[in-house]
Design a protein around this nucleic acid. Sequence first.
DNA 1: TTTGAAATAAACACAA
DNA 2: CTTGTGTTTATTTCAA
Length: 638
Amino acid sequence: MVGLFPSVTQTPFRDMQESKTDQAANSSPAGQERLSLGVEQVTNETTVKTCTHQIQQALQVAQQQQQQQQSGEKSQKSVEKEPETQVPVSLAMMTPQVITPQQMQQILQQQVLNPQQLQLLLQQQQALMLQQQQLQEFYKKQQDELRMQLLQQKHTGKPSKEQMLAQQMAVQQQLLSLQQQHLQRQGLLTLPATALTSLPQSLIPAELQKLWKDVTEVRSEEKSSGDKSPSSSKPPVPNQHPSTNGHHTPRPIRRESSQEAQSNHPLYSHGVCKWPGCEAVLGDFQSFLKHLNSEHALDDKSTAQCRVQMQLAKDKERLQAMMAHLHVKSTEPKQTPQPVNLVSNLTLAKATAPKPTPSMSLSQSATAPSTPLTPLPQTPSVIIPSSLHTVGPIRKRYSDKCNLAMDQDIVQNKEFYLSTEVRPPFTYAALIRQAIFESPEKQLTLNEIYNWFTRTFAYFRRNAATWKNAVRHNLSLHKCFVRVENVKGAVWTVDEMEFQKRRPQKITGSPSLVKNIQSSLGQSPALSALQAVMADSSLPLYGSASVGVSSLKTLVSVMHEGLSAPDHDDDSQSDSSLDLSPMSALQHAGFKGQQMEREYLESSMSPEMGDGHSPDLDHDADYPEEHEPQTARPTAFS
DNA sequence: TTTGAAATAAACACAA
DNA sequence: CTTGTGTTTATTTCAA
């Protein structure tokens, strides 16, 4: 892809093309972060290893802050914003944050952290350690189970890394919910004092307590002497992790309570305080506020509880990252960075594809959220960030040859395609054919074909002018598409004979990939699409996950808008609601050879095939026709 | 290096 | 005149 960049030159349409190319090229800084997600992140042990790293990060952050403060600039903003949102969070994505006392001591000695930061670190540490303990238990248990299952599989079939990962993923999922239940049941954290006593010695020596004490003392001093904390002057940052380095974990809550005018307080619902483990019943909102201020004020306990919640969130993100990881690299764990070179990434992705992935079922189900195996509704959203850049032309598609595979793919990955702007790995011709086949009458008007595209693929909700043109072009170009005139106008049908005729001609896409499909039909081309997408993606998946998918999405679309110039319509929103109805009926009842043949014989040009069919092609019209006051006219230049 | 298929862009015709 | 539809041509990219 990149390779083509410099070569694009002489055409009169260069402008447009370049803009496209830019999009593609833009996606280059890809997977630096991605690489850091190793297989081992599932295991708990690694968390310890990374402590040092974390500390270093923390130090850096702290130093940064110090410099800023010293430089006399109004540092509040940056102090609060930058470190909180950037460094630590992405860091946190990787591992739970646990700091050894020694490290803590070191920080203290270096005095790069202010007391508040220290306090937070400590609190965080405590909460996390507690949690880690619990986690460890679960992990152990689950991993044992895993082992058992794998052993069993060894007898029945070949186990694969992917399967294992999938299971780990499932485990992680389970874990998350278990964790939540667990913690909530316990009223999470009667902490920290009680918790401290039960923590593993290796992690929680008296030393730490001492440090803690020091810190709290300092803090109270500061407090009394006039706390000019950022929080007092700064508007709250929504969605911000009060995390890692953050001053004032409880800040958001406090602010909320003071500002709160509406009663849709996130911590207040149906007369019950939703503070973790609280559940206090409070008649009205006022008393809730009082309760909030008195019971959940800025204290150690609250802080720790916040930490835990944060950790839960992080774990959730971790899970998502894992899932994303599995999508991308299900064939090859070591698909390394190559951040710039899309080509090599793509090649790599392709190169790995041949290896028949026995676990296709995994990726399949993973990409199809509707599948029982992966009930996680957010599945697509994990992928969204990367796929947001409308992936440019991936010249790796399944030819029409793999009709069956394609059908299956589309069906099985319907939600995936619907929610993710991945280019479907099929040719326009194949897609058009599919669209027509899915219609009850095996015929569609042009507009209905358009609708099918937008309805079925998120990808085709952009650049309408482009792909619509392509659709028309394909309809005209290929003999296999027959225009039939009827009362209502013209509809398009598929001449399957013709279609079959051209099939053997060629197979686009890597042969091995195709072979793969042929050999096991259940496989998911979406995987390859995904791979391509991920390879193309410029978004550091992990860094981004910490930002939050939705905000990221916004960000990316902004980027996208800024870069990709001329044509795209914003028609996509409304129809995200549309649902499975037409698709579920889509077990297209095979091809009626005779019908098509007849039409074929009548020659592709005969107007008035009559038949009066198409009584109701309007199953398309049921859909809120999203978009499209949009002009199909090229707006790019004039 | 050649070649064919597909994607993309665009010009043009024509009817509503 | 605009828009949607349909046809055609040219160019580019990719993979065999």
